[in-house]
Structures are given as structure tokens and as C-alpha cells.
Design a protein around this nucleic acid. Structure first.
Lengths: 220, 220
DNA sequence: GGGGATTTGTGCTATTTATAACATTTTTTG
DNA sequence: CAAAAAATGTTATAAATAGCACAAATCCCC
């Protein structure tokens, strides 16, 4: 059975919310309450989970730790994942120093760049190698995921090389859409694209602030 | 007529691809070619654009610069947008120094934090203010968008304050799902969540690398 | 320990989203 | 200049996604 991608995309959100609940010491949660925390209907959550099994107890709900464990296993988070970063400019260095990866089992084990100013230098105890050594390095010490933080003009070539080196998942910080063979996963991190989807809704609401909180009669 | 959110979400991708084409000196593009660049069917693109008008010419395609201009106008990118950053830790500083915002008309004009080590310091020619001055500052010099880069435990309160201060769009870098009143736009930037949607597909393919390129008979 | 209150998992229905197909227009070619 | 090729905009169709509603199970209270 092929599980819809939208369902998979929601699982990490469930996991994130469950972690917060566990932190707060909650032992049980209903689809109702989980849905309220995430802005998702309870039916949606139950349906999503039913693709993978039966995790709840009628009349009670879901055991927080238990469901979290199950979702983590479904997502493959019960192991560590190795990543290679390409592009160690400002953005790349910020990615290298991001503390959020390791606690979830994601580790950057290689860093590549072409800039002679950067190659050979050490960031976060990782020596930057020249991109020309990419294939060789990954043959010796493979990774599961490639993280791309190079200028958009260079991104396609970098991604091609990662894929040829056996990488089957790309986290793409470059503001472009790469072409990859089927079976290779790509996810985009592009704050500007997200901002642009919000401005559409902001546009033409300039008057709202002014009107806000006024006597409703003023509107007529 | 209410335009589907998925359609709005694709417009920035069209704009991005059109910018690349314009850069390359292309003057005209068909839905076919644009779709190939983005991994989207030509029918999808034509349908999306038809929500907003008729931009193409039968037998020819779309004028690259013209369509780009139209999409930018639809998205409200024909003006500048002011943003306030809350949280000037490692991540916040990386956001402050990100060069990708300004060229698209997005400008961080305020930065807030609570850490006395950071408040008062200058980053990218912006003096960090204490969060307690948030409401007052935004009353004096309003912004359109709030950018949140605080720890997840603090994010809900920060977002509440931004919303109360009149901000109607939030770019959320904190790994949590905030509750906001209707009409407030929220977009999430969470690399870990994206990584976790990929590991699902990677999981259980450990053998693929080994099998790749081998005699197909080996698979039986 | 019985009855009302909860809450799951799921079949069914509605809604949303994507694709296909085609008439129409424009361009290009011989 | 006529015919073939190319490409749009749109209507119709198909596929995917979400929500409803309810039987069944469990819990909790008196």
C-alpha cells in the first residue's frame, strides 16, 4: 500500500507536538487535543495514523511516549543519519553550527567548498574539503543526505554530483528547483519563497491596522 | 473568487524560474518548458495562471519579463516589505546577515532579544532592542512581517505579542506550531521536519547502493 | 457494577486538486 | 499563401485529500 506523501509530511509535526507534550509530563493525549495543538482536525489525525496501525485506546486516547516512539520508528528516526554539506559560506556555516540537527539524529560529517579561503579551514571541528574530492570522500565514508548551500547557479551541478555519488536525499537551501532522477528525495528551504506566499494575503490590507479596534460603525 | 492556497504557493516558484530564464536572456517560454524546469505539468501551470488572467499568446507562449512582472504584482512584490526579527542568537544572526531578502524587497528593520549580552549590540547596522520594547517600537515604526527565531518554549508568547502589535504574517523558525487568530499568516522554516519526511523514504533502502548498477539478475 | 461520557478506527461522502483533451489562435515553413 | 506545427485558455474528467458520522471499546463516577 502506497501511503500519501501529505500523510508522511504530517508525521514529523505529530512527533514534534508529542515531544512537547512529553516534556510537559503528559502521558495521554486524544486526537482532539493533538489536533487543537496543531490546527488539524481530529479525524485527519486518526486517519493518518490508521495507515500504520492502531496506536490508540478507545475512550482514552494515545499514550504520548508510545505514539511518539511509533512515529519515530515509522519515519526511520530510530537510527542516526549522516549528512554532507556542500557550500561553507555564511549560510553553510550557520547550518554547520545549528544545534537542532544532532538531537534528532542528524549529523553533518563532511563539508565541501571550492573557495580556497575556506577549503582546509575548520568549522565546528570539521575540516572543509574541496568539492573535487566529493566523490572520493563519499565513496570512503558514505552519507545518507546531502545539504546544499551553494549559489543557485552552482546548485544543479552539486546535486548531480551528490546523486552520482549515491546520495538519495537532498536538503536544498539554494533558491532554485533542481532536476533529479526518480527516487531521489528533495526538500527546499527557501524563506523568500515562503515570504512571497504571505505577501499575497497581506497585499491590499493596508487599511486593516487603521480600522482595527475602531467603532464598527466607522466601517460603514 | 477564492484562489486556492496551493496555487498561491506555486507562484513564487514560477517567479523564481522566470527570473532564471530572464537572466539567461530568454524572452519567451512555453508552459511546457516552464513545467520541465519545475517538475510541474504544463496544464497545471496554465490552469494556475488562468486564475489571474490571460498572460500568454497561443502558438508562442509567455513573455518572460511580462509574466514575471505580472506574477510579482499578483504576489504584492511590487513594493518593499518591512520585517521585525525576534531572537538574535546564532540563528537570528544568520537570518540578519542573509543576503537573499533585500533583493526581493524584504527588509529587517527591527531586531529584538532578551539576553543582556545581546541587547544594545549592533548586528548588520541594527541595534538589538529588548523584547519589552516590542509593542512600543512597532507602534512607532510598524512592520508587515514578524520573523521568529527564539527557542520553541518562548515562541508562542513572542508570536502573541507580534500579533497584538498588528503583525499579520509570521515567518517561524522555531520548531513548534503556534496558535494564531484567523487572518494571520504563518509559515514554518524547519529543516529537521523536512529531513524527517525524507528519512521515511530512505529507510529500508540500505541495500540499494549495493545493488545499484549490478546485473539485474542479481536481484532475483 | 451499571450508565453516561469519551474516544478510537473506519466506511462513506464531500471537497479539493490535478490531469486530460480540445477548440482556437498564432507562428512557421515550404 | 496555405498547410502544418505549436501553444494557450478552458471545460470536462479523474484522482487525491479531507471530513463526517457511527459502531465498538474503554473509562470514570456514583
Amino acid at each position: 500500500m502506497e501511503i500519501p506523501g501529505v500523510v508522511i509530511a504530517r508525521l514529523p509535526l505529530y512527533a514534534q507536538a508529542l515531544e512537547a507534550l512529553a516534556q510537559k509530563g503528559e502521558e495521554v493525549v486524544s486526537s482532539q487535543r493533538l489536533g487543537e495543538a496543531l490546527g488539524i482536525t481530529p479525524a485527519q489525525i486518526r486517519k493518518d495514523l490508521s495507515y500504520f496501525g492502531r496506536f490508540g485506546k478507545q475512550g482514552r486516547g494515545y499514550n504520548v511516549a508510545g505514539l511518539l516512539g511509533s512515529i519515530r520508528q515509522i519515519l526511520g528516526l530510530d537510527r542516526q543519519w549522516r549528512m554532507a554539506l556542500v557550500g561553507v559560506g555564511r549560510l553553510g556555516r550557520a547550518i554547520l553550527s545549528y544545534e537542532g540537527f544532532a538531537p534528532q539524529g542528524f549529523h553533518i560529517v563532511h563539508a565541501f567548498d571550492v573557495d580556497p579561503e575556506v577549503v582546509g579551514r575548520k568549522f565546528e571541528s570539521l575540516v572543509v574539503r574541496h568539492v573535487r574530492e566529493l566523490e572520493e570522500t563519499l565513496a570512503q565514508e558514505p552519507v545518507d543526505i546531502g545539504v546544499v548551500a551553494v549559489p543557485p547557479e552552482a546548485a544543479q551541478e552539486v546535486i548531480d554530483r551528490l546523486v552520482r555519488a549515491g546520495v538519495r536525499a537532498i536538503l536544498n537551501y539554494a533558491p532554485m528547483t533542481p532536476r533529479v532522477p526518480p527516487g531521489v528525495q528533495v526538500r527546499r528551504i527557501d524563506p523568500v519563497v515562503l515570504l512571497e506566499t504571505m505577501t499575497y494575503y497581506l497585499k491590499g490590507q493596508e487599511g486593516v491596522r487603521f480600522l482595527q479596534g475602531r467603532d464598527p460603525l466607522f466601517l460603514r
